[in-house]
Amino acid sequence: MFLINCPYCGERDQQEFKAGGEAHIERPKQPTELSDDEWAEYLFMRKNIKGVQFERWNHAHGCRKWFNMARDTSNDEIKAIYKMGEKPPTQ
């Protein structure tokens, strides 16, 4: 059970949050221009890596804001939390 530092509310228990899958996958601006394969890449393909993964989280039972998290999936260490639209930390 993580302790998650919501960028808007502060530290809260994981049960207030909802995980929303991989972060930084932008919805294509012109979907009609894409081939089936390109669209499928956006729609279905997600990473599942051992190590630092960038994820979307939502403070569903709190401020309802979406934000990003860099989490090491091998030990569940939360490396960074940053707002939507911000670039992922490089380190």
Binding site: K18, R56, A60, R64, W66, M84, G85
Partner: peptide, 13 residues
């Protein structure tokens, strides 16, 4: 509601 909020906050801010 969750889905609409998601799009508003993340895709179409």
């Amino acid at each position: 509601l969750g889905k609409l909020e998601d799009y508003l906050q993340t895709e179409w801010p």
